[in-house]
Amino acid sequence: MSHLKRNIVTEDGERFSAGDVPLFKVEGLSLSFRRFQKRMRENDVCVIRNMDLTINAGEIVAIVGASGSGKSLLANAVLGLLPKNAVLGGSIYFQGEVLTPERLHQLRGKEMILIPQSVQALDPLMPSARQVQAVIRSEDKQAVQRDIFAKVGLPQEAGDLYPFELSGGMSRRVLASIAMASQAKLVIADEPTPGLDEKALQEVLEHIKLLAKQGRGMMFITHDISAALQIADQIAVFYAGETIELANVQDFEGRGGKLRHPYTRALWRSLPQNDFVPLAGSQPVAGEYPSGCAFHPRCPLATELCQQQIPELRQVSGGWVRCFYA
């Protein structure tokens, strides 16, 4: 696995170089929801403010953040599955071209696919094989589907079963099969590991690795930083609707000295295998983000500047960080 990573990402920093066109790029993405209140006054609730992200082919980028950080809405935003009152700002590029709603409409399911969070995403009244075959474009859909079932360890009989007859583990394999059956170059895994036991978790991580090995760009949205560290090439840390750090996996080591943002360091140190010290306070909820840096009320390094100004994302030692004092 690791030799493959090296094929695609040779050296730190190179993946940010302007020369080659990344598979997928998000620049200054913002997302808010328009609410109509009394007397028809509009009120926008901001959920995502400053989201920047780049994913290359064959690369796994984990988007890590606590629940409520807006990361799960990101998948919907990228796939264009937001409700009508959503207001999207910033730009999304796919293979170097702006992803307009029309283009997205064509690419969805063909060039981009989702691995959903819940096994509820399978149609309860359709046998699993048919749900997998729906994304296959080639002539012999059945052969392709059978091949993939064998690859993920699903018995062929499972194809005739309805979702309610499948175990949780088998349903997850069906979900992974759908991503594998598609020709999608970008796979968005939206919290695919909620509450799974260790064995099931490892299996899902294997599926994601396998998909990356096939040369697909993987957006792995999760709140489980240890899971992310196991397979990702790059970690994007999400806090209060902002990307606050883009770090390489290698930066997560020791006591977190190589990490750039105080929140990332606190997150790393809060893990049981590390110092196991929790960070005091909680993440601000959408619509009540503080002025200046979103993290300043909880930050040990915060100064007056942090209260007034939102720091820009800047490059620091091979990664990117949104902090004045990194």
Partner: peptide, 21 residues
Amino acid sequence: SEFIRFAKAKGEHGLRLLWRH
């Protein structure tokens, strides 16, 4: 529902989506 959201993510839409799911 979740499965319609997923079906849309799989690129199905309009009448075909209604018919299939």
